[in-house]
Amino acid sequence: MAILQVDKLHFSYGEREVLRGIDFTINKNMVVGIIGANGSGKTTLLKNISGYLAPIYGNVFVLGKNIKDFTIKEKAKYIGYVPQDIVYDFEFSCYDVVMMGRIPYLKRFQSERKEDRDIVRECMEITNTWQFKDKSIKELSGGERQRVYIARALAQKARILLMDEPVSHLDIKYQVEILSLVKDLSLKGILVIIVLHDINLASQFCDEIFIMKEGKIIASGSPGNVLTLNNIKSAFLVDVEVFENPITHTPYVIPSLNGKEQLKVV
């Protein structure tokens, strides 16, 4: 059974059609990167997959079950979501924040069980955030905060982890740290779908890449097959040069400066 199947998905905000027929099926755990120009529908696609937004046409199936047929609480047991902009203007400790990931498993008046505390600890250790457990989330740096939110999504024991540009505001050290963590998670049995702005990071860390343009997926497959000159030019409307990364042997993309300054191709 497919882990995630998206079938003829259409979505619009009022008059504006943002997703115009999205189809794909994912059968195994891996890191799927979604890239595309601003406004191409990447975030909207994630929110449709998570069931936060309801498509006007088409369906999303998680492990064979239509997302529409999940209750909000059930959904949270299958899908974890790490937002683009993390709100952190509150006083909760990081431990409390991660513990919120256990909400789907607790009855209204039930207090946290040992099992929940164990899971929270485990998730915080995996994400290397256990040392922040008593700190307020306000006191952390952007990368640390991201890791706390990833820990919370992991505490949901979700099968699918959706991440919306989790590294856009981070410096390169944290970018690599977060993406390596994501890669590890996929190897441990989670499907990660991640929206990325940086094509080269996507190329380096993702098993598969979807390129979106105007509400459609115009190319999907391994980075080597997808990140071609034409695909990128078509999606981003910019001229680029594509090289091979000598270490990972994945495509390496840089903007071409033709007409301005001739690039010396080695």
């Binding site: 998570s50 936060y52 909000i72 609480k73 059930e74 959904k75 949270a76 047991k77 899908i79 974890g80 979501y81 937002p83 993390i86 709100v87 509150f90 909760f92 409390d96 924040v97 919120m100 990931g101 909400i103 789907p104 607790l106 209204r108 008046f109 939110y149 919370r152 949901q156």
Partner: peptide
């Protein structure tokens, strides 16, 4: 008071709260 825990989650963002299973 019954909804205390849900409001805790909403404090961390309305949308993320929904992704935590809060209506």
């Amino acid at each position: 008071y019954v909804f205390s825990r849900d409001v805790n989650a909403i404090l961390t963002g309305e949308e993320v709260a929904e992704h935590l299973g809060v209506n």
